[in-house]
């Protein structure tokens, strides 16, 4: 059952990212990406991270992609982009991708054979929150400063001048 779910979700995830690469319509790209992120949430659930799975679906598939779709609606590019004229960038990117696969596989080679810990993970909101407010308190506070800065920055960037 676990394997079936894993392969189903993995195929869904990879397939929708592939669809994003192939499709030329930005709105379809955003919808493909929502499917990819939702199935990624399912994979997190398989890895005994239920809270992260819910956060993934609410924040990524919900909030961030809605932001993307808003911007796509504002920009409203009617016709899609024709395929890449310069073929060499495609070949170059494929070559770079092969190099990247090899590099990542070498980097993670030691991790492939890691033993699985058999103990049950306590990954509910209670234990996560306790860790967040004790061991990771300073990163948490710094993150809040980052969010304020991003919010103010985004508003200042997009706001039109009043005299215009």
């Amino acid at each position: 059952m676990g394997y079936f779910l894993f392969f189903l979700l993995a195929a869904l995830c990879v397939g929708s990212v592939l669809g994003m690469i192939i499709s030329k319509n930005q709105a379809y790209n955003a919808l493909f990406l929502i499917v990819a992120f939702a199935s990624m949430g399912g994979l997190f659930g398989l890895l005994e991270a239920p809270f992260i799975a819910v956060v993934q679906i609410i924040i990524y598939a919900g909030a961030i992609m809605v932001l993307f779709i808003f911007v796509i609606m504002m920009i409203n590019v009617r016709k899609g982009f024709p395929p890449e004229r310069k073929k060499w960038t495609l070949y170059l990117s494929l070559g770079l991708a092969v190099v990247l696969v090899i590099e990542l596989a070498v980097a993670l080679k030691g991790a492939f054979t890691l033993p699985i810990s058999t103990e049950k993970l306590e990954a509910g909101p209670v234990s996560l929150g306790r860790l967040l407010f004790t061991k990771y308190l300073y990163p948490f506070e710094i993150t809040s400063i980052l969010i304020i800065a991003a919010l103010v920055g985004a508003i200042v960037l997009v706001k039109r001048k009043e005299r215009e």
Binding site: L47, S127, K135
Partner: peptide, 10 residues
């Protein structure tokens, strides 16, 4: 998951 800790999730 394979290390058995939830630090990665944070």
């Amino acid at each position: 998951r394979s290390a058995g800790s939830i630090d990665g999730q944070v």
